[in-house]
């Protein structure tokens, strides 16, 4: 991918915008930002939502506009691409580690090959690393998470849904 210096500055700035539902990861870590094109005082950003119904989307768009306006861009466009695919397979190892240290079990990979198998794999507790865990609720506090329970350290924890 060819990135101009202007584009690079924008990518760096966007790395300060957090996913409000997972505040340890930025929207760049989450691979929500899918395209940046800066030219003079104009900038276009394309975002690809994780789950289509994610209610944090509007908030993230506002935050992107704010950050880029503060950088001096006067013409900021933020477009949502609903047709580009997004998958938890896109998350890099360091993003997965940040999730785990925040208490959210990262998704297994690669999901794209077989979701059924990914869901059947044991989930390690993000606190004590035990594999003696079970699914408590297939749905959680946000669209992208499920609730698990660790039978070893007796804590419930969240797991990022493989997608």
């Amino acid at each position: 991918m060819n990135r101009s210096l202007d584009d690079e500055r924008v990518w760096e700035a966007l790395a300060s915008v957090k996913d409000p539902e997972i505040p340890v990861l930025s929207i760049v870590d989450m691979k929500i930002v899918s395209r940046v094109r800066a030219s003079g005082t104009a900038v276009e950003v394309e975002i690809t939502p994780t789950f289509a119904g994610c209610p944090a989307l509007a908030l993230m768009k506002d935050e992107i506009r704010k950050v880029l306006t503060e950088m001096g861009f006067t013409d900021v466009s933020v477009e949502t691409n609903f047709t580009a695919p997004w998958s938890t397979d896109l998350l890099e190892p360091d993003a997965r580690e940040k999730l785990r240290s925040f208490g959210i079990a990262p998704p297994p990979r690669p999901v794209q090959i077989d979701l059924g198998r990914a869901l059947a794999e044991p989930v390690a507790c993000p606190y004590c690393a035990s594999a003696a865990t079970h699914l408590e609720s297939a749905f959680g506090a946000t669209l992208c998470k499920q609730i698990f329970y660790c039978d070893a350290c007796r804590q419930s924890f969240e797991r990022f849904k493989p997608l």
């Binding site: 789950f51 289509a52 119904g53 209610p55 949502t80 609903f82 609720s137 749905f139 669209l143």
Partner: peptide, 23 residues
């Protein structure tokens, strides 16, 4: 658990509506 499940499913379906309405 079902309260959470059906609220999530509702939010997903409304998200899918957004995909089709945007198209």
């Amino acid at each position: 658990e079902e309260d959470i499940a059906f609220s999530n499913i509702a939010q997903d379906e409304i998200g899918h509506a957004l995909i089709w309405y945007t198209a």
